[in-house]
Amino acid sequence: MTQKITAHDVNVFYGEKQAIRQVSIDIDQEDVTAFIGPSGCGKSTFLRTLNRMNDTVASARVEGDIRLDGEDIYSKDMDVVQLRARVGMVFQKPNPFPKSIYENVAYGPRIHGLASGKSEMDAIVEQSLTRAGLWAEVKDRLSDSGTALSGGQQQRLCIARAIAVDPEVILMDEPCSALDPIATARIEELIHDLRGRYAIVIVTHNMQQAARVSQKTAFFHLGELVEYGDTNDIFTNPREPRTTDYITGRYG
């Protein structure tokens, strides 16, 4: 199995405070990887190091070695624009731009110059929306505002937007925490469908969701990676007592 992302001895600091301690992890190309752990354990922070979104926080500082296909993403030669085109992201709260549905999806391809001409762009938009399972619902109203969709549709639009630049990895930061159970189920189905085409890393505070959608699970606690392994093993036969405590609901 190929390793898409390898992280080694990663530390993250916010000013004086250390948010991530000595985390090393390999993310598989073919799998969905879930990050679980109690609030404030650093799982989202670590996720954001993988596409350098922590750069937008002035006080954040990242140490260690993170490689995408063997390339150091924190090296001086790494172009952040290219990195983020290869590693897409979906956020906790759906954040479509206040533009039309079409323009939301076309935003990335335009920036990166992926389409030459209207028909190519149309094709990208249709394909992305189809993959995100939204095409059937919106194909007749592509010019409506993206913000007019329901919460679940907005989140699928954000996934379509991420897919449109043809990334290799998709990071999802608690993508269902603002959605109702039905919309959540649709997103989970979608994650199943996308598996294999993209390496997917999903942060969730919902352990059932991690068990449902992922093949690998990493358990974070107090900024440390406590345990990482096959999802089945983590949930049925954890090695670490802290993992057991968390999974059986003793804290969290």
Partner: peptide, 15 residues
């Protein structure tokens, strides 16, 4: 303008 707009755009690889 919510920060999530800015993050969303930056995460797409926009400068």
């Amino acid at each position: 303008v919510p920060n999530s707009m800015r993050d969303g755009s930056l995460a797409m690889g926009a400068t």
